[in-house]
Write a protein that binds this DNA or RNA. Structure first.
Lengths: 214, 214
DNA sequence: ATAGTTTTAGACTATCAGGCGAAAACCAGC
DNA sequence: GCTGGTTTTCGCCTGATAGTCTAAAACTAT
């Protein structure tokens, strides 16, 4: 998770999620992209999605001592989930760092709750969409993808099953092309890629199905 | 869909979704409840859920002629999906009415887009959650539930399959209790109810499954 | 050549969605 | 009281899918 350390005083020193104020002539989408650009290469953003609005009147207490005036500092946040591939690690500003989602430091304000919601959404969508493309590099082995899924989902994933399921769904496709021979022995892995690199839901639960195309 | 007809001038006369301004000391959740209370009995609200933020700077054009000043009327909306049972139809204010979602009148501002998103969310969640409880009365027959699902989903639903699927998932439970004998002949239907009346997702796609409890 | 390691493929099981048709339970009319 | 029509319910069958396990394949190192 991409965090940066606050320098100024509401909660100075605390780690927090990147973001910033909504400008007068932009929508929240372009706004979050603008703010993110100060931390990462926005061109690598493979997915960006609204999570929720966080609007507790007290979520960001102002520095004002008089509680009667705190409403003047009211801050309502629109939280986003943004994903970048594990590809290569681009240069980051000094105050910014990637942190493992399992062991996050204490976060400023209600950012821990926001992070939780975002991770839940990622977990869910990884399961019923092809969203993995936003985390994986252009080409990868099944093992690499397994690790990415395991890290994002938070639990161990079977490579065999993942391969079959994602292939059957048409999400994953072998590049035909071969493998990068191993470093520590073992059969060289085949390379795969995501068939599509735009979000697609896997048969949105026909459940009580419309005609059901086959 | 619950709509009301605007009386005042930005788009006066147009139908629009209920809502209003966020007060200084409330979060968006309590705010939407407060505004809804002016239209319906909020106690009947069985489900309420954020959809998304709509923040196009031009989504609500101000009455100001000078476009350089339009940003002064900037309105950012947090859209919600709220559901009430088909139970009984409570009294509504004169300017307010329920309208079939299939054939909506032209809506004010970007409310058509909002309604679309909300309906999409409802459709999705009906399929993989027990959200039907928020639409159905406390007790109902399979036929009644089938009609509710068909109306919400927008396509024909098989009563047989729906019954089996929802029962297997533990979402639906027979009240044991009998049936209200028919009006036009036919076997009297058994009564069912939702096992739980709080939101529960149906096995959030084990897909690349954690241990998988059975 | 042999042992060890990693990846891939196949076999098997259990579950689930969905379609179809028959049986059950009621009403109306002769 | 029996018959036909209607609505609901139940059971059978098929196809697809997730998941586990085991064996084979393909490579490195000794």
């Amino acid at each position: 998770m991409l965090l940066w350390q606050r320098a100024r005083d509401p909660q100075s020193g605390r780690w927090s999620l990147p973001g910033g104020r909504l400008g007068p002539d932009e929508d929240v989408d372009t706004s979050i992209r603008r703010h993110l650009a100060q931390k990462v290469d926005v061109a690598r953003l493979a997915h960006l999605e609204q999570i929720a609005v966080f609007s507790d009147p007290a979520r960001v207490p102002g520095p004002v001592a008089d509680p009667a005036q705190q409403h003047r500092r009211r801050v309502v946040a629109t939280a986003f989930l943004g994903l970048v591939p594990t590809d290569r690690d681009p240069a980051l500003p000094a105050d910014t760092a990637w942190q493992p989602a399992d062991t996050l430091p204490p976060l400023a304000f209600d950012h821990a709750a926001i992070a939780d919601r975002a991770r839940g959404r990622l977990r869910a969508k990884l399961s019923y969409t092809n969203l993995g493309f936003a985390l994986a590099p252009p080409e990868f082995t099944i093992s690499q993808l397994r690790e990415i899924y395991a890290a994002a989902l938070g639990y161990r994933v079977s490579a065999t099953n993942m391969q079959r399921v994602l292939t059957r769904r048409g999400v994953l496709a072998p590049t035909g092309a071969a493998a990068p021979p191993g470093r520590s022995g073992g059969r060289p892995a085949a390379l795969y890629r995501f068939a599509e690199r735009t979000l697609r839901v896997t048969d949105p639960f026909a459940v009580l199905g419309p005609p059901r195309r086959r």
